[in-house]
Amino acid sequence: MWRASIRRAPWRALTSALLLILCASLFPHMETLFRWLQPDASQVVYDRDSFWRLLLSHAGLVLLSGFIATVVGVVSGILVTRESGRDFLPLVNNIASIGQTFPPVAVLALAVPMTGFGGAPTVVALTLYGLLPVVRNTIAGLEGVSGAVLEAARGMGMSPSQVLWKVELPLAFKVIMAGVRTSVTINIATAAIGSTIGAKTLGDPIVAGLINGNTAYVLQGAILVALLAVAADAIFERIESASA
């Protein structure tokens, strides 16, 4: 996956994370500012839940589903590129590429009839959807290791598992991480929409604000979600450039 390189800002992860913490702690105390934005509303600071609770729950949902998706995705990516599992490669490739065409909202909505409302369908949908980029990139990364390199590794007397751990996975690491990054970015966004199906996320203030026509609520949620996404992306960028 081709990404713009912005190496000149290694502090981006730190800044955005700091801003995120700052905003989450200060929003409840910034009533005057939000009052100016939304003079006619009775409430201008979202208080049905603390921003910290929402932030942690949002991050928790993404981390949990991201973790499951990464483990399952990488393992299945490895399995279908082994000699014995190669028969499944076209099937898995097909599912991954068709699945990515499905809009995340639709996947989220379709998870509800299966598991009911709340956090569970969100995790299910995020995991299923997050799997696709990981599987795809794991396969691409492993297939991208040149045959000559594998030949050489085998020639040195490495066993298949040594080849996998010491040659293939390190060489494919960057591509796999890019897949995980795509998956997490999409999932932070989708988790925000998850609040429409009853998950506790930073999307709550946004949705509540949209329903009541309260722009201040919308702004509070939107700023926090945006910062969370930018911070997560910047952290991945650090990992990628550190491993390069």
Binding site: R3, A4, T185, A192, T215, A222, D233
Partner: peptide, 24 residues
């Protein structure tokens, strides 16, 4: 550099948040 920097940040921002940020 500048262009792709800005665009990839935009891409990162969750859709619900971006829609929300544009309202005000």
């Amino acid at each position: 550099r500048g262009l792709f920097g800005v665009l990839s940040v935009v891409q990162t921002i969750p859709s619900l948040a971006l829609f929300g940020l544009l309202i005000a």
